[in-house]
């Protein structure tokens, strides 16, 4: 899929649209009895992550979500969805709880990236992300992922390992923000638009690369009316849970491993 620069940039703008709903809206709409569970039991409670349990299709489901916040006050409270080590560790704790009690896990990825700060480094940001990757890949329960708006770098990856990975139609998923990419490779952050076009960050490109499995249609766009998109997400989630729950758990974990084992492109001389 080759979109032109303008079309890709349009997607970036929609993904960051001020009226675009955040994870809280999905939780409210799909999981009305959601109960939040807090803390990593080690250091604190990272409010960039909302984690807990809800009922879905007559059974419990574990929800792990990155929340960006909508009002200025909320954005600050949730640190714009940028996680600290305690957030990744909280997510893993709640995911392991889901594994123990045999609940499916649903992750909503929505972050510009892990927070680059002093505290995050002091508390082992790199180790927290790495450990999540190593542990989640082997969790013995179905994991379903959706990228809501922005999936940025290691911060997204730390809750991005799953059996089934989807993206909303107007979302992006990337190694780094287009601005960051442009400032590193072109030494000029204002070339973000040019960078976005080459980076392969759209759901269409990522599906072609087999990095994701499904694109969730939004109809007129989540920022205008989230109803259709949320309905499509709900159907996707029902289908995936039904599909994954009948797979033997050993096979499920093997399939998940193989899915990520295959990623990458190279040549053998």
């Amino acid at each position: 899929m080759n979109m032109n620069e303008d079309a890709v940039w349009e997607k970036v703008k929609l993904a960051r649209h001020p009226k675009r709903p955040t994870a809280k809206s999905i939780i409210k709409s799909l999981f009305p009895d959601f109960m939040e569970l807090h803390g990593d039991r080690l250091y604190g409670d990272d409010s960039a992550f909302i984690t807990g349990i809800a009922t879905f299709q007559n059974g419990p489901i574990t929800i792990i979500a990155q929340e960006k916040g909508t009002t200025t006050e909320e954005k600050i409270k949730h640190n714009f969805g940028m996680g600290h080590p305690e957030g990744y560790r909280k997510a893993l704790r709640i995911m392991k709880q889901a594994e123990k009690f045999n609940r499916p896990i649903f992750c909503i990825v929505d972050t510009p990236g892990a927070y680059p700060g002093i505290g995050a480094e002091e508390r082992g940001q790199a180790q927290a992300i790495a450990f999540n990757l190593r542990e989640i890949i082997r969790l013995r329960t179905p994991i379903i992922i959706v990228v809501l708006s922005e999936g940025g770098s290691g911060g997204a990856l730390a809750i991005g390992v799953g059996d089934s990975v989807a993206m909303f139609e107007n979302s992006i998923y990337s190694i780094l923000s287009p601005e960051g990419f442009a400032s590193i490779l072109y030494k000029d952050a204002t070339k973000a638009k040019e960078a976005a076009a080459i980076m392969k960050i759209t759901p269409e490109d990522l599906k072609e690369l087999s990095v994701i499995d499904t694109i969730i249609p939004e109809d007129e766009g989540l920022h205008i009316n989230p109803k259709a998109g949320f309905e499509a997400l709900k159907n996707y989630l029902i289908n995936e849970i039904n599909r994954l729950k009948i797979i033997d758990v050993n096979e499920l974990v093997d399939l998940r491993f193989e899915k990520f084992r295959k990623m990458g492109q190279f040549e053998q001389l």
């Binding site: 790495a130 990757l133 990856l157 991005g160 990522l206 491993f257 990520f260 084992r261 990623m263």
Partner: peptide
């Protein structure tokens, strides 16, 4: 791009 990011999962897996 993203394929590099995915190597983080692959190696950790």
């Amino acid at each position: 791009g993203i394929l590099s990011l995915m190597q983080m999962i692959k190696t950790s897996a």
